[in-house]
């Protein structure tokens, strides 16, 4: 039983600390979200290209695999 009490308190207090910190952050910090990609670019999907994903028009999208030398034959544009 002593073992359970020690572990129960050892888990209960950190859990309470994490929960209270979360609520303090959630309710005391207002307008935490900065401007991000969504605000400036995502709406572009509607009027640019159907190929566009996430607001970015991909001109090349390739998986190079596990190539140990990914630079081989690769040219940046």
């Amino acid at each position: 039983m002593v073992f359970s009490i020690v572990l129960g308190l050892g888990l209960g207090f950190p859990l309470a600390y994490a929960l209270n910190s979360f609520f303090a952050y959630k309710y005391n910090d207002c307008g935490k979200h900065k401007g991000n990609f969504k605000h400036f670019a995502e709406k572009r999907i509607k009027y640019t290209s159907k190929k566009s994903e996430l607001g970015i028009i991909f001109e090349e999208s390739r998986d190079l695999g596990e190539d140990s030398n990914p630079w081989d034959g690769y040219r940046f544009h």
Partner: peptide
């Protein structure tokens, strides 16, 4: 863990960045 590599070339227009 196996490492894989990916290549992405793309463009995007950002509007009204304040």
């Amino acid at each position: 863990l196996l490492t894989r590599y990916f290549r992405r070339r793309g463009k995007c227009s950002f509007k009204n960045v304040t």
